[in-house]
Amino acid sequence: MRMLRWSATAAAALLLTSLAACGADSGNGGGDGKTGAFKIALIPGVANDAYYGSVACGVQAAAKATGSTVDVQAPKTFSPTDQIPILQAVIAKKPDVIIIAPTDSKALYAPLKQATTQGIKVVLVDTTLEDPSIAEAEVSSDNIEAGKTAAAKLIELLGGKSGSVLTVNLSAGVTTTDDRFKGFAEGLKATPALKDLGQQYSNNSVQTASSIVSSTVAAHPDLVGIFSTAAFNTEGAVAALRARKDNNVTIVGFDANPPGVKQIQDGEVAAQVVLKPYDEGVSAGEQAINALTGKPVTKKISTGAVVATKDNLNSPEVQKYLYSFTCPAA
């Protein structure tokens, strides 16, 4: 299987093109009590992930109703090192609101606090902060519940097998993936026959994830399941098992990007937990505009998830949530 990968430049170009197709309008900004034409800055977690393409499409759909503009600036890697300079540059442009997926729950607090002291409103989407009090709203999936869903699906797929289960996580301090592991570990307790090996961090590297899986298979011949909390982790796990020609390990991941869909179609991943990033984007955009116009704001919004397998991949309820840089028709 040819692994599909987006470069940061290509992804950013596709994202901006798709946003234009969704109907971006020019506006003059202004968080001064006006009812529209606001300047909305969106800073996703990373540029090369169709998940955030869907988030951006949702934000744009919400912005379109008021004639507001959305400027998307995404870091090349999922890291505060890359995201903070982008945030600082965005703050200097003085948008009315910043909608951001923080790449670290602590490191992003200070620069976002700086934005609020300059009168820029902040809405958190997908990920959050350890102290989210500076934000107007938080919009995210219920990742603990989604992790429990992943555990239940893996237990079902293993059909009574016993053995070890590994979690390949992103990096410490990312609220979404930390919660996914928390929910998964809790859900796995329902089956004592499965030994939880805990989590190892890939730092969003396909190569590191592959190395983790390879060494774990060698050290634990009874490995029967892998839970991957993010797209690149799944890609690395698939590569490691493919190299070993190992068909005895069942993977449940979190990836409805094009490569993740292909992994299901090819039978290399048994199931993917599919979140609802478009819904997240719509809600984040709506709460941002509510905050700017003085309307009531919902401080915390959680969206759900579905599970995609080869059996239901083409069903409407799964298809509408697959991640994409192409915005749905209005």
Rank of each mutant, 00 (worst) to 15 (best):
L194W: 04
E235W: 02
A270D: 10
A65C: 09
E156W: 02
V224T: 05
L241Y: 06
E268M: 14
A288C: 14
S171N: 09
N314G: 13
I40A: 06
V165R: 01
D142C: 04
P75T: 06
V165Y: 04
F254M: 02
L166E: 05
A284M: 12
D32E: 09
V297K: 10
F78K: 01
A115Y: 02
P258N: 11
V213N: 01
S302D: 13
F78S: 05
A12T: 15
I91P: 11
D246A: 09
S54R: 01
V282Q: 05
T9V: 13
K276G: 08
V269P: 02
I264K: 08
L19V: 03
D104M: 10
T35K: 15
T66E: 15
D25F: 02
D142A: 13
T9K: 15
S162I: 09
Y201M: 13
K148N: 01
S202C: 08
G253A: 12
G58I: 02
D96K: 10
N290Y: 10
A41G: 14
W6C: 01
Q287A: 01
S315T: 15
P95D: 12
N257F: 00
S26K: 15
E235S: 13
A115E: 03
I155M: 02
A56T: 04
M1P: 07
E286R: 08
Q319P: 06
P328K: 04
S141W: 00
F184E: 00
V261R: 05
A21Y: 09
K295N: 14
P44Q: 12
K182V: 13
Q83N: 11
V122G: 02
K245E: 15
I301W: 08
I98L: 08
Q118M: 15
E186T: 14
V273Y: 00
I289C: 11
A20I: 11
S18I: 07
V174F: 04
A151S: 03
E235C: 03
V217W: 07
N203L: 05
D222W: 01
D178F: 01
A137W: 09
V238L: 07
G147K: 00
D266M: 13
V306A: 11
T309K: 11
K295T: 09
A305H: 10
K94D: 14
Q272A: 12
G53S: 06
R180D: 00
S133I: 07
V206D: 03
G119L: 11
V297A: 04
N314T: 15
E145G: 01
G36D: 11
N203I: 00
K153S: 03
I134T: 06
A237N: 02
L112W: 08
T191K: 05
P80D: 04
I251D: 04
T250E: 03
G253S: 13
N314F: 14
V249C: 01
T250H: 00
G285V: 05
Y109C: 03
D246S: 10
G304V: 06
G30P: 15
K76W: 04
A21E: 15
L157G: 05
L166M: 13
A231Q: 03
D311Y: 10
K34R: 15
F227K: 00
A330M: 06
A74W: 13
A172I: 12
G160P: 07
V122T: 08
K76P: 03
I98G: 04
N48V: 04
Q287S: 00
G36C: 13
P111Y: 05
S214P: 02
N204K: 09
N248A: 14
P296R: 07
